[in-house]
Each structure stands twice: as C-alpha cells, then as structure tokens.
Write a protein that binds this DNA or RNA. Sequence first.
DNA 1: CTGTTAGCGCATTCAG
DNA 2: CTGAATGCGCTAACAG
Lengths: 359, 359
Amino acid sequence: MTVTLADVAHRAQVSPATVSRVLNGNYPVAEATRARVLRAVADLDYVVNGPASALAAATSDLVGILVNDIADPFFGIMAGAAQSRISGPDGTARTGGEKLAVVCNTGGSPERELTYLTLLQRQRAAAVILTGGAIEDTEHSAAVAAKLAKLAAAGTRIILCGRPALTEGGVLPGSSTVTATLSFDNRTGARRLTEHLLTLGHTRIGYVAGPVERTTTRHRLEGHRDALREAGLVYDPALTLHGPYDRASGHAALAQLLVAEPDLTAVVAANDTIALGVCAAARERGLRIPEDLSVAGFDDLPSATDTVPALTTVRLPLYEAGARAGLLATTANPPAGPGYVETVPAELVVRGSTGRASK
Amino acid sequence: MTVTLADVAHRAQVSPATVSRVLNGNYPVAEATRARVLRAVADLDYVVNGPASALAAATSDLVGILVNDIADPFFGIMAGAAQSRISGPDGTARTGGEKLAVVCNTGGSPERELTYLTLLQRQRAAAVILTGGAIEDTEHSAAVAAKLAKLAAAGTRIILCGRPALTEGGVLPGSSTVTATLSFDNRTGARRLTEHLLTLGHTRIGYVAGPVERTTTRHRLEGHRDALREAGLVYDPALTLHGPYDRASGHAALAQLLVAEPDLTAVVAANDTIALGVCAAARERGLRIPEDLSVAGFDDLPSATDTVPALTTVRLPLYEAGARAGLLATTANPPAGPGYVETVPAELVVRGSTGRASK
DNA sequence: CTGTTAGCGCATTCAG
DNA sequence: CTGAATGCGCTAACAG
C-alpha cells in the first residue's frame, strides 16, 4: 500500500541501507548509485516514514516552539522567524535533514505548558524553544525545570527566547539542561523609557503592568521603578495597575489612573497593545496626545504606528531574536555550550506620543 | 536509560501488552491491574515513546494546522481555537488519547505549504487543518490536491477552514480526499458591506483588495462588485487596488485612490488591518472619518475597535470556526463524511467609521 | 563505498 | 481478562 524504503531499494537495485544513506546524506555514496536511488525515490514518490526513522535513530526532526498567546503578534513574529530559520528560508530542502518546526500555544496556562512539554517529550523532539515570559510560581517553575531536565537528558535541545535563564528563578537546576538562553533586556529598556519621560518633565506617571507573577511583567516594572528611584521620586503603588497584555486592559486602566491621580501627565504601558488601549481611552475622553497626556508602550510591534501620533516605545528585535533561537535550535555546533546566555538589547524609540509635561 | 513500556510492565507484574492496553484505554482491563499499572507508570514517570507507538499503530497523534501568516491575529485566533479544542480546554488529559496540535506557518509561500504537507505526511499526522484562503494557481492547486489525496489515502483527516471546497478550484479531485470543509461566506459578507455603503448614498467607492490569486481576495471582491451591479452602478477597475493584507497596503492605497477619484467618499478594505492603514492615512491628510470619508474593513478582529471611530466591518466567527475545525479533526465520528461542507456566516457590523456620503 | 544483521518500543494478532 | 509472539519501517554498527 504505502511505499517503503525497501521498495525504493528494490527498484534502485541497492540495499535499504544505501537508500537510507543517500536520503540522510551523512555518509559517502557513489554519485552513480546516489542518482539511481534519487530517481527511484522520485518515481515511487516515496516519503520517509518519520516515526520509523525516529524510533530507529532515537530522535525526531520535530522542533517545538512554545508561545503564550498565538494571537499576539509579539509571539507570532518570533515564532514565524524561528520557523522560517528552521524550515529553510523558502522551504527549499527536499528530503534532507529537514526539520519540522511547529508552534504550540499554551495560552499562558501552566498546565498546557507542561502538557505540551510532555507531548514533545513523547515525540522525542529534537529541540524545544520556549518564548516569552515565564510564570513565577515556585511549584510550576520546579515542574517545568524537572520536565526540561528530562527532555535535555533525552537529547532534546532547550532554547529560551525572551525568558530569563532558569537559574534566576532561584529554584533551578544545573544550567546544563538549557542549551542556550536569549535574554531580553526588559529592565534596561523600561528604565530608558521612564527616564525619557522624566526628562520631559513628567513626575506623575501611571504604569499599566502585565499580569502579576510573570518575569516579563516584573522586569519591566522594575526598570520603571529603577528610573523613578534614580530620579529621586517616590514610587506610588497606586499608580501601577496590573492586567492582561491586551488592549482592554489599557483602556480600562486609564480611567482608574485618572481617579488615583487627576494630575497624571503620562502613562507607561507594559506593552504596545496595552498602550493602544490607553490611547483609545484618552481620545474618548478628549485628552490630546501628547499635549494633555503622553503615552508610551513596549515591543515596537507593527501596530505601534497604527495610532496617531505614533507610539513612543522600546524596540525589541523580535524577528532577529526568533531567527537566532531557530538557529541555535538546529545548527550543528551551537555557538556555546550549556548555560550559554545572550542578552538581546532593548532600544528606546521616541515618536510622537510623548511630549513635554503639561503641568 | 529512558524508561520503556517493558519497564512498567515489569514493575507492575504484568505483560507489556497489558500496559499498552490500559494506556490506550481501548480494551477491557481489570480494575485492579489497571490501577497497578497506572501506579507503576507514575512511579517510573513513564512517557510513551511517540515514534514507536506511531510506527506500530501506523498513525500518530500529531495534528497540523497550516496558516498563511502566524503574526496575523486572523490566523492566530483560528489556530488558537483549534488548538485548544484539540489539546483539551485546559490540557487536562494525561496519558490518554492526547493529540499534539501544532501550527505551521507557510508565510503565504506555496513551496512552504507543500513542504509542510510533506513533513506532516512523513509524520503520518492524524489530521491536517488548512486555514485561510488558497492560492489560485493551477499548478500549485494541483500539487496541493495531489498531496492531500495522498495524505488522505494514508488515513490523515483533511479539514479546510476558511478555504473553499477543493472542487471549486475546478482542478480538483474526488471530494473524498477532504473530510470536511468550513467555507467562509466572504462573498455575501462583502456584498452586504457594500450595500450598506450604497444605502448611505455613496457611489464613488474605493476598494483595497488583498493579493491577487487568492480565493479570499477574489470572493470578497466579487461580493463588492455584485452589490455594485445590483445597484446599477458600473464597476470602475481604477478604484480597485491590490496589495498584501497589511496596514502599509491600506495606507499607500488611499493616496492612489484619491488621485484616481478625487470625489471618493468611501473606501472598503479587504480586511481590518488594511482598513486601519486607510484610516491612518486619512487622518494624516486631515480627512475626518466618517464625515469626509467612510471606511470599512472585514473580519472584525479585536483591533477593529482600536481606531476612533471604531470600524464598520464584517464579522467572521473566527474563534468558533477554528474550534469547530479542531473538533472535526479529532472527534471520533465526524458529523458527516467526505465532501461535507459547512458554511460559516459573515455578519455585517455597523460602527462609527461609516456615515452618509458627503457629496 | 556497499550489503547484512539486528534491534528501536510499541500495538496487535492469537492463544489461553 | 491476560500473556506470548510477530512485525511496523528504518538506522546503525559491522563486515566485506
């Protein structure tokens, strides 16, 4: 029914082993036989049986990319970049060492994160790329760490992209479980952003943070507070609100912030999507941006220029980082061994949504 | 090193066959032994070897979801919905018939679409869900059709979500290759939208279409033209511009449209993202929406309410459709056999971005 | 450079 | 209800 390696071997008049060798290209084969085999493959329209080869080789060509929210471009951009890096820039490779890069959506749920990790473990995945902030819950961190350790032990490469090195959680295991870490410099980026606002004369600044217990949320908030402290300002907890990384959160937050501080002149959002919500709410109230209120975001997503004026934000090279993660996940000789950490810079981008403080 | 089924069997004092049976739960096993096995599984922290079981069973638990652009929420929403439907609402199931739903980003490239299909075929995927519009190129359609036929022949379920039934391409194969089709009613939705504008007195309406040779692009444009024709208006090709489904395309299009027709009073965009670009361009030119220019989109993405005023658009139940596709891909008894088609309705949503024609 | 020989770990017959 | 035997399709030593 379905054509197998043996069929190809038969038709090409060679042994199955030889066919396997030309297909995997990791062994010397005479050009003549190689051509013959390739022809047989084409004639029979043969497609390797993944499970069988994975079983025999004890490793598969699956690479899993875990994201917190697939509907959010922040993750979409990184995942897309990683995927195109892994599957080849334009789906070129034929039967070769082609990897299957797939993205798994955890929806921010700890359980699903673990479930996917188990599923990937079951598939004997070649690599796993974890993107975005991690949940800061001791129990869950420990569970994830344990799972990753097992994955690593089974030969799966672990790449962290935009997630702090595991050791930082305090809980965690020999760094030997992680192949490489791309750490976003959220803290410095956030600090620069708030410094920018302080330079413009703002002193009453609202902050719309992400969900609590997320590393990204915490680091960005810390950067904000660092800037405030250095400027000698006291941090007012009432001016920081937590919520999901979405537009609605920003929209709702502005009203609350104005109640807490009628003299508010600026709002920093934990990401661009939230900032867009803040902008919309400001417009609805007749507040001009930036004359009456300065608004800033984070990430520099394409939509940061969707609003008028365009958003001042902190640019994170998401595409580049994703591509790099894809490379680290599949390259033959990873640039560095276990425990390797690269810091991805965050750059302040000043646009029209921030201006001098009005009061 | 890695624990196998045999290890579990040994510890539970049963045969490997029995362990297999309790794990797959599709065979009667005494409650006592079942419990014993489960305990052994837990004690040993056993994880099924996917490739091995896929090889033996001749089918895997992999479900592939193909999307054109993972950074676009249009796809993200559908993919996320399908994925959560497949992997269980909250990653509950343990060792059971858990499927691994993964999304593959083709980036709109025909080659990559085919590559992913091959990779999925290689993995003996349980199902494949193709989302979004298809590319209308005879050669490519034929290649995809052939590939899908092979997948289907190998037992993989094929679900089309937001993509017209294959037969419509004209090229294509016995409907028996496709398990089910969820067809978006783009045509009717587009017609309703343009009718809405006509009712408001608009007669010079610009249309910013998607890329040429895409079913979605064509259907939406046809709906637009249908409405024009029924109203007795002549269709002016100069008022239709093609471009990618992104913001920049809409932004650039407005300028061109105004050159082609200075008396333009309305612009219909092929999707919300393009519409947002049109809105931004309008604001930059000092055109008030909707007083000077009415703008409408399509899809009703969350960002449709990001602009002020909010976008009049056509709502597509993306989440519901994605979830439905996920269900059809995994449910034991698909609601209907091969060639089954469900039409997903498109509903007009009138908001503030459209108003009476000014001239 | 190429053929032979063994399994990889699990799902199934088929007996009992 | 449970155990024993067989093979899924391929890769990886080993020889030649």
